[in-house]
């Protein structure tokens, strides 16, 4: 590989990286973040973008450049340009680099996972019951059932998830957390809502004919209004 090749590849792959980066940022690939855990999920997501986008740009630039530079065109003769069936240094470097990158990403993922799951303390317990095809929320401390999931901003909540029949899944895109609800088992999910607003809870595990419409409203309210808000819901 000559200096000219190297410079061309660097220039075009950096250009492509910038274009892709601009597109990804401009189209706002993630919805707004409404929990503290969402920051860690986005952190892991962005770190992986930072690694994969340049790799993608580099490989694609390399292939396209090679196609132009070494096209046989109309010449179908068997000319000898280069006979290389391997290169020990390139192979070793390639393996070492990919190993280092993957282990680095895995380490970062582990770190973010601990940031999301590490703390088992919560200020508030809520029981979430799913059945084909509806959600029900129970606040044991206040003894209130509610069709809407109401959460206090800035308080860590512990959801106790259980299913009456088949496997369902709890997902609020703005919280970035997903957890399956298994029949015959109580699964915990802890997080801290960090932004006031109305969101939607989706069932994200195929659970039968009504799966598409199995949603529930979610509302994050100020700490002070929390008690009053859930009392209104009582039914």
């Amino acid at each position: 590989m000559k200096v000219k090749d190297f410079l061309t590849l660097t220039f075009f792959s950096m250009g492509l990286t910038l274009i892709l980066w601009f597109l990804i940022t401009y189209t706002k690939i993630m919805p707004q973040a409404a929990s503290y855990e969402a920051k860690h999920v986005d952190g892991a997501f962005n770190a992986m973008l930072a690694v994969t986008v340049p790799i993608f740009a580099l490989v694609i630039t390399f292939v396209v450049y090679t196609l132009f530079r070494y096209s046989a065109g109309k010449d179908q003769s068997e000319g000898i340009k280069f006979y290389g069936s391997g290169n020990g240094i390139v192979e070793a470097a390639w393996i070492f680099l990919s190993l280092a990158l993957t282990l680095g990403l895995a380490a970062l993922g582990t770190k973010e996972l601990f940031a999301i799951r590490g703390n088992d303390q919560a200020d508030l317990n809520i029981q979430v019951k799913a059945s084909q095809f509806s959600w029900e929320f129970y606040y044991p401390e206040q003894n209130i059932f509610s069709p809407e999931l109401i959460l206090p901003e800035g308080k860590r909540v512990r959801l106790l998830l259980s299913s009456e029949d088949v496997v369902h899944s709890f997902w609020v895109p703005e919280f970035r957390l997903k957890q399956d609800l298994l029949p015959g088992k109580v699964v915990k999910l802890l997080f801290t809502p960090s932004k006031l607003g109305q969101y939607t809870l989706f069932c994200s595990e195929l659970c039968g004919s009504g799966h598409t419409t199995m949603t529930a409203p979610v509302r994050v309210v100020e700490k002070e209004q929390f008690a009053a808000s859930i009392k209104e819901q009582s039914w």
């Binding site: 892991a44 790799i55 993608f56 993957t102 999301i116 970035r176 997903k178």
Partner: peptide
């Protein structure tokens, strides 16, 4: 490359089943 996003537990919590 997008497989890495799904393999990573934190981002998979968001991206799984989407």
């Amino acid at each position: 490359l997008t497989g890495i996003f799904n393999a990573d537990v934190p981002s998979d919590l968001h991206l799984h089943d989407t």
